[in-house]
């Protein structure tokens, strides 16, 4: 009987593997979970896009729930996303801050003038150094920051209406309730 067990082993290995594959088919291996979730926003200090002399730093992100959206004019997916952000900004539920990532200042200003500006304020990261501290690896990416300046959630890829309804708004409301 014990000998039989040895011969059954390959079947068991196969079943386990197929189980993992099945799960794996529904996972996206290109989404990298950020280790910064649950940690305070990294310290940074960047010039503002509209006013290079003014600075934007982590203190700006404390006190209320906010979104930080990483974007750039060279980013194709950011185009579609911007409409969604404009809609969200109109609802006035949450301030949206922009992190303009490795961009050209003039084209960025033109883009906002032409397409509308959903952002409360925009930090201008021309080198991408601050983005590395934030663990950014592409655009667009969106961070949800709580009242204490702690990163609570990160969405990778362009935001859609569905993402706003399913992922962002419920979390924003929950954080608000938590805070009061």
């Amino acid at each position: 009987m014990r000998r039989r067990l040895v011969f059954i082993l390959p079947v068991l290995v196969l079943i386990a593997l197929i189980g993992f594959f099945w799960r794996g088919l529904y996972l996206n291996p290109t989404l990298v979970t950020s280790p910064l979730i649950g940690k305070p926003v990294p310290d940074f200090s960047l010039p503002r896009l509209h006013d290079p002399k003014a600075t934007f730093d982590q203190n700006r992100l404390k006190g209320r729930v906010s979104l930080v959206n990483v974007w750039a004019t060279w980013c194709f997916a950011c185009r579609e996303e911007q409409q969604m952000l404009l809609n969200l900004a109109k609802q006035n539920v949450v301030p949206i801050y922009g992190l303009d990532y490795k961009d050209d200042r003039q084209s960025a200003l033109r883009w906002l003038a032409e397409r509308g500006n959903p952002y409360t304020a925009i930090a201008f990261d021309s080198t991408g150094n601050v983005a590395i501290n934030w663990g950014v690896y592409g655009a667009p990416e969106t961070f949800l920051i709580d009242q204490h300046g702690i990163i609570r959630y990160k969405y990778i890829g362009p935001i859609t209406t569905e993402v706003i309804q399913r992922e962002l708004l419920p979390r924003i409301h929950a954080l608000r309730r938590e805070g009061t």
Binding site: R3, R4, F7, I8, P10, V11, L14, I15, I18
Partner: peptide, 14 residues
């Protein structure tokens, strides 16, 4: 395919 072959194997090979 693999499952059938291995079940057959577990049954016949001993």
């Amino acid at each position: 395919f693999v499952g059938l072959a291995l079940i057959l194997y577990a049954w016949r090979a001993p």
